[in-house]
Simulated assay, not measured.
Amino acid sequence: MITPDYCRTMARYNAWQNRSMRLAMETLSLAELLKDRGAFFGSILGTANHLLWGDAMWMSRFSDWPKPNLPGAESPRYMPTLATWGAERFRLDAHILYWSDHVKALDLTGDLSWYSGVAATQMRKPRALLVMQLFNHQTHHRGQIHAMLTAAGCRTQDTDLPYMPQQGPWL
């Protein structure tokens, strides 16, 4: 279904896009980042926090990353400021890059079982599908953030995969 090369490409894309998003977010005040913009998670920072929370939750299932210390319903408040969000985003993106550089084809086979607090049930799905979910979830919510940043007057960078630099900086 997917390969280690897919994981490496998407991990680089994730880090590249998060860096770009952070640079745009840094042009706004905390009040602007927290302003309710009608998105599902309210604000730019709320949506960025939800995305960070989701990435941390999936990586806790795929690797040795610690599970977030709050439930999914509270994910928009995961990090209180852009500085704390940026530091944690940097750490997690570095971990996702490291994980992707070491993932083997065998690691993408079989099922993964976990308890989903969001769905309040035990789950079991193909591991490859869940890795695809990690990357799809990132792209989905970054698209929302991109739209909110654009509406707030921020200059954003390209988001298309063919324009991703062949070399870093990813972070």
Rank of each mutant, 00 (worst) to 15 (best):
residue 60 S to Q: 08
residue 132 M to F: 07
residue 93 D to G: 01
residue 81 T to P: 15
residue 130 L to A: 08
residue 132 M to A: 08
residue 62 F to M: 04
residue 68 P to R: 11
residue 144 Q to N: 15
residue 86 G to V: 04
residue 108 L to D: 03
residue 87 A to R: 12
residue 167 Q to H: 06
residue 81 T to H: 14
residue 76 P to N: 06
residue 148 M to Q: 10
residue 107 D to L: 05
residue 122 Q to S: 15
residue 66 P to Y: 05
residue 48 A to S: 13
residue 50 H to G: 00
residue 88 E to L: 12
residue 163 Y to V: 07
residue 55 D to P: 02
residue 49 N to F: 12
residue 67 K to A: 04
residue 102 H to M: 09
residue 148 M to L: 13
residue 108 L to R: 02
residue 58 W to E: 04
residue 72 G to K: 06
residue 104 K to E: 15
residue 45 L to G: 09
residue 95 H to E: 05
residue 56 A to E: 08
residue 98 Y to H: 03
residue 128 A to V: 00
residue 157 Q to H: 13
residue 56 A to D: 03
residue 59 M to D: 06
residue 60 S to D: 07
residue 84 T to Y: 07
residue 142 R to H: 06
residue 167 Q to F: 03
residue 134 L to Q: 06
residue 142 R to L: 08
residue 66 P to F: 05
residue 152 A to G: 12
residue 74 E to N: 11
residue 66 P to M: 07
residue 68 P to W: 10
residue 130 L to Y: 10
residue 68 P to M: 12
residue 102 H to W: 09
residue 85 W to C: 04
residue 90 F to C: 05
residue 71 P to N: 11
residue 160 D to K: 09
residue 53 W to Q: 06
residue 132 M to N: 03
residue 161 L to S: 04
residue 165 P to E: 11
residue 135 F to Y: 13
residue 145 I to T: 04
residue 163 Y to E: 04
residue 167 Q to M: 04
residue 58 W to D: 05
residue 85 W to G: 03
residue 68 P to C: 13
residue 91 R to W: 05
residue 94 A to N: 10
residue 85 W to K: 07
residue 49 N to A: 14
residue 160 D to N: 15
residue 112 L to M: 13
residue 91 R to G: 10
residue 158 D to V: 07
residue 60 S to I: 04
residue 49 N to M: 12
residue 80 P to T: 08
residue 127 R to W: 12
residue 168 G to W: 00
residue 117 G to E: 14
residue 119 A to F: 09
residue 80 P to G: 09
residue 91 R to I: 11
residue 150 T to I: 10
residue 93 D to T: 01
residue 129 L to S: 13
residue 88 E to Q: 15
residue 92 L to Q: 10
residue 97 L to E: 01
residue 135 F to T: 02
residue 154 C to P: 08
residue 78 Y to C: 03
residue 90 F to L: 14
residue 153 G to T: 01
